[in-house]
Design a protein around this nucleic acid. Structure first.
Ligand SMILES: [Mn+2]
Ligand SMILES: [Mn+2]
Ligand SMILES: [Zn+2]
Ligand SMILES: [Zn+2]
Lengths: 144, 144
DNA sequence: TTATTATTGATAATAATTCTCATTTTCATT
DNA sequence: AATGAAAATGAGAATTATTATCAATAATAA
């Protein structure tokens, strides 16, 4: 599924790349490079951390995955399952829980805002990055 | 202005803190910790980098300044001049130019979106973080 | 199969940030 | 103004995520 059969990429189809794509495409959640490294080792024991970083860069560049910064000091990665959607995050400052919120491009709540910006500043938006920080349902209760 | 006269803080009024607040409150732009360090040295030659980091953390916590991540590997800081506004950024991927876009809370384009999230996920938003990446006016021309 | 060359793993290097600790400042109290 | 307790500081070491280096290996086209 990730890359089918036969030649279809401008890059070599290596074990590390295939295993990493498979891993991330099946992962729910937002893993760091090192977490991915240890998971990958289970199926490809000889893999090196540098290769993980390199592959993550590559997959990010070609748009198969996305890199996020949730302000915990390390980058986190997520497979892009739906190319036609925007993907936002709610991050609980208390317990670290991350809630995904995905919407189709058509019903993107930021659509109008983005359009107005493109006009107002003559700025061509290529990607946007939105996180909400706060308290999840559970942690709100514990606050009392 | 930063802190008036007399006791008004739960922290000590030190030279470093006063100088750093003054510096940031007069700075247009988004300086990194090290840039702030060198600027600060001009007026307080003995200051240490660790103190700059510590003070930036403190001022961020108490809400006098805000820390941003523009994906260039270092945190950047900005004085909060208007407490009643949202402050967004457009970042040019080509030349690095950063455009500020500030709106009052009332006319915040994300207001409805935020409200819907608070309801839908029962998530209490404390802060939000939105950046747009793309091409500024100039760099769009150069692309051709 | 072979030649070419991209990719890899190990490890050293980098760089932003944090930590440690002895010394200095601040500030409430004399 | 002098004192003392605690907070804050500066210097530099330590930490940690990420990059760079380079000889060895694996993927591809011929
Ligand atoms: Mn997600
Ligand atoms: Mn700004
Ligand atoms: Zn929570
Ligand atoms: Zn530009």
């Amino acid at each position: 599924m990730p890359f089918g059969k036969g030649r279809c990429w401008r890059f070599r189809r290596t074990q590390a790349r295939e295993a990493l794509i498979k891993l991330l495409s099946r992962t729910k959640g937002h893993l760091s490079a090192e977490e991915i490294f240890w998971e990958l080792k289970k199926v490809l024991p000889g893999v090196g951390l540098a290769t993980v970083y390199r592959t993550l860069d590559l997959l990010t560049e070609i748009g198969l995955i996305k890199r996020y910064d949730f302000k915990d000091g390390k980058a986190r990665y997520e497979f892009i399952h739906n190319d036609n959607a925007e993907h936002y995050h709610l991050i609980c400052k208390n317990c670290g829980k991350i809630i995904d919120y995905e919407v189709t491009l058509e019903e993107d709540p930021l659509k109008d805002f983005k359009n107005s910006i493109q006009k107002k500043f003559n700025f061509k938006i290529e990607s946007s990055d939105l996180q909400f920080y706060g308290l999840c349902e559970n942690c709100q209760k514990l606050e009392k």
